[in-house]
Design a protein around this nucleic acid. Structure first.
Length: 477
RNA sequence: GCACGAGUGGCAGAGCAGCUAUGCAACGGACUGCAGAUCCGUGGACCCGGGUGCAAAUCCCGGCUUGUGCUCCA
C-alpha cells in the first residue's frame, strides 16, 4: 500500500513518490543552540526520527540532514552576557542536544551541517541572488527583494502580499533600516563593532536567518530534494523565505517536493514559550520521567497535531510505557525473540500498524496496535502458553515498538535490567521470606490486623505484596 | 483584522459517507479478610444551525469557540 503524506504547500495528502526512485532526500530544520533543548526540539526530532525510520523500513535509502544554526543574534546575546565567545555557547548547547536526543533513542542524522561551516556556500548563493536581480545591497546588509518574485508569496501560509503589507503596518522592524520594503528580508547582515563576523564581498558580517537552510540543503542534498521539514512555527517567514531564495537562485520550481510540518507543544492551551514562563527543557522533563517515557508521550499524537503538555499526560504515558516495558521484559527473559510471521493476530496487527504509518505517519494508530499486542502478550504470559507465541510477540514488539517507534531500549539492556531486578530481589529475599511466612500464619489464623501490620513492614522495605489465587507474590516497588 | 488549522464520550485520541476504534478513568461481575493485580462485561460522544445523499461525526454553506502564523522561535 502506498505511502501518503500531507504536503503543506499543496495542503493535501499526496502519494509519496521520491524524485529518484528508491531514495529519499530529507532536510529538517534543526535548532539554534542558544539554550538547552526544550520539548519543542524533542518533538521535532522525534517526529522526523520516526518518519526516517519508517521510510527506511519501507525500503527507501534515506539521506537525512538536519542543521545547527550556530551563529545568530540570540547566541551572541547569551555569549555577551556570559562574557564568552559565541562558539562556547553553541558548542555547549549542541552537546546538550546530542545527549538528550540520544537518550530518547533519536537516531543520528546522516549530516549535521552548521552555518559556520557553510559560509562560502552562503556567500555564493547571495552573490547569485544579487546577479539575478533578486537581491540588493543596503546600507547595513544585503536583502532579498520580495517584489522580484511576488508570485512566490504565501506559498505555505496562503497569505498575500497585501495582507502582510497591511498587517505589519506600524510594526516595521528596526533591524533592517536598509530595507526598501519591510517584507524584504536579510541575506547578509553587516557586523556591528564587536560582533563575530566573516569576510564577504559586502564587508564583514554574518548570514541572515533564512539563507543558511537554503545553502545547506543545496550543499548536502542538491538542487532538488524530496522532503523539507520543521516545526509549524517556521512556516512563515522562515520556510517561505527559503522558497524565495532557493527557487530564485536555482531558477527552477519547486526545489522541495513535499513540505512536512510538525505541530507545536502547548502548555495550558498556549504555545510553550519562554516569555509565558511555561517552558520545559528536555532536561527538566527527565527529572520526572524516563527519556523513553517522554518519547512515548510525544508520539501519542500525530506529528502534525498540537500536543497539550502537562504532568497528567506525562504520567499517563509513563504508566503505559512502564506497562509495556514490564510485559516486554518478562517475555524477553521467558522466551527470547522469535519470528512473528505466521501468527495471524500479529500479522493483522502489523497490517494495521503499516496502514497507519502509511497514512501520513500516523504514529497514534501505530501505538494502538502496540498497546493491543502488549495486552495479548501479557495474557499469554499469565496463561503459561507456549514459548513460541511469546517469542513471536517479542519479535513483533522489537520490530515495531522498538525498530520503528524507538520506544524500547536495546534487548541487552532490558535483559540487564531484568537481571538487576532479580539480584535485588535475591538480596532482599532473606529479609522478606520470614515476614511472608509470619503473614501467612497470621492470615491462616484470621488475625487480619497482624497480617496488615506485617504487610506494612514489607512496604517499609520497599516490597509490595499482592495475594493471588496461587498465593502471595511480591515485587520491589 | 487577515491567513491556516482544530472542535468526537470524564480525559487522551482514531475514524473522514453506511460496519464495536483503542487506551486511561467510571460502573458491574469473577477472584479477594482487606488491598492490589488480573480477567470478563457495561454505559457513555461526534460545537451549533441549515443543505446535499437512501444514508453524514464524516461532504457543502453559515455561525460560534479555540490554536497557530502575520515579530525571534521546533
Amino acid at each position: 500500500m502506498a505511502l501518503r503524506v500531507y504536503d503543506t504547500r499543496s495542503r493535501t495528502k499526496r502519494t509519496f513518490e521520491p524524485l529518484i526512485e528508491g531514495t529519499v532526500r530529507l532536510y529538517a530544520c534543526g535548532i539554534t543552540p542558544y539554550s538547552p533543548s526544550h520539548l519543542g526540539h524533542a518533538r521535532q526530532a522525534i517526529a522526523f526520527d520516526v518518519i526516517v525510520r519508517w521510510l527506511r523500513h519501507s525500503g527507501f535509502a534515506v539521506d537525512y540532514v538536519t542543521n545547527f544554526t550556530d551563529i545568530d543574534d540570540k547566541i551572541i546575546n547569551v555569549a555577551n552576557a556570559e562574557g564568552v565567545d559565541f562558539s562556547v555557547v553553541a558548542e555547549r548547547n549542541i552537546a546538550d542536544y546530542y545527549q538528550v536526543m540520544d537518550a530518547m533513542n533519536v537516531l543520528r542524522a546522516d549530516a549535521y551541517p552548521r552555518v559556520t561551516e557553510t559560509i562560502p556556500e552562503i556567500i555564493e548563493m547571495v552573490e547569485q541572488l544579487i546577479e539575478k536581480g533578486h537581491a540588493y545591497i543596503g546600507n547595513d546588509g544585503v536583502y532579498f527583494e520580495i517584489d522580484t518574485a511576488p508570485e512566490k508569496y504565501g506559498q505555505l501560509t496562503g497569505q498575500t502580499l497585501d495582507m502582510v503589507r497591511a498587517g505589519a503596518g506600524g510594526r516595521v522592524d528596526d533591524t533592517g533600516s536598509g530595507k526598501r520594503d519591510h517584507r524584504d528580508f536579510a541575506l547578509w547582515k553587516l557586523a556591528k563593532p564587536g560582533e563575530p563576523s566573516w569576510a564577504s564581498p559586502w564587508g564583514e558580517g554574518r548570514p541572515g536567518w533564512h539563507i543558511e537552510c537554503s545553502a545547506m540543503s543545496l550543499k548536502h542534498l542538491g538542487e532538488t530534494f524530496d522532503i523539507h521539514g520543521g516545526g509549524a512555527d517556521l512556516l512563515f517567514p522562515h520556510h517561505e523565505a527559503e522558497i524565495f531564495q532557493s527557487e530564485c537562485c536555482l531558477g527552477h520550481d519547486p526545489v522541495v517536493k513535499y513540505w512536512l510540518h510538525n505541530g507545536l507543544i502547548n502548555v495550558d492551551g498556549e504555545k510553550m514559550s519562554k516569555s509565558l514562563e511555561n517552558f520545559w527543557t528536555i532536561g527538566d522533563t527527565f527529572e520526572h520521567v524516563h527519556p523513553l517515557e517522554l518519547r512515548y508521550a510525544l508520539l501519542n499524537a500525530r506529528y502534525r497535531q498540537p500536543i497539550e503538555f502537562n504532568m497528567a499526560m506525562l504520567e499517563e504515558s509513563k504508566k503505559h510505557h512502564e506497562r509495556m516495558m514490564e510485559v516486554y521484559g518478562r517475555a524477553l527473559v521467558a522466551a527470547g525473540s522469535g519470528d512473528w510471521n505466521g501468527c495471524d493476530s500479529l500479522e493483522e496487527a502489523a497490517e494495521r500498524f503499516t496502514a497507519g504509518m502509511n497514512d501520513d505517519f500516523n504514529s497514534r494508530t501505530a501505538m494502538v496496535e502496540v498497546q493491543s499486542v502488549v495486552r495479548d502478550l501479557r495474557a499469554l504470559l499469565e496463561s503459561d502458553s507456549d514459548a513460541g507465541l511469546v517469542a513471536a510477540g517479542v519479535a513483533w514488539l522489537d520490530e515495531f515498538a522498538g525498530g520503528i517507534l524507538g520506544l524500547l531500549p536495546d534487548a541487552e539492556s532490558v535483559r540487564a535490567a531484568q537481571a538487576e531486578g532479580e539480584s535485588a530481589r535475591d538480596a532482599l529475599a532473606a529479609k522478606v521470606e520470614p515476614l511472608l511466612e509470619a503473614r501467612a500464619a497470621a492470615r491462616a489464623a484470621k488475625d487480619w490486623p497482624r497480617a496488615d501490620q506485617i504487610r506494612d513492614q514489607l512496604n517499609e522495605l520497599g516490597v509490595v505484596v499482592e495475594d493471588s489465587p496461587d498465593g502471595p507474590v511480591w515485587r520491589i516497588e
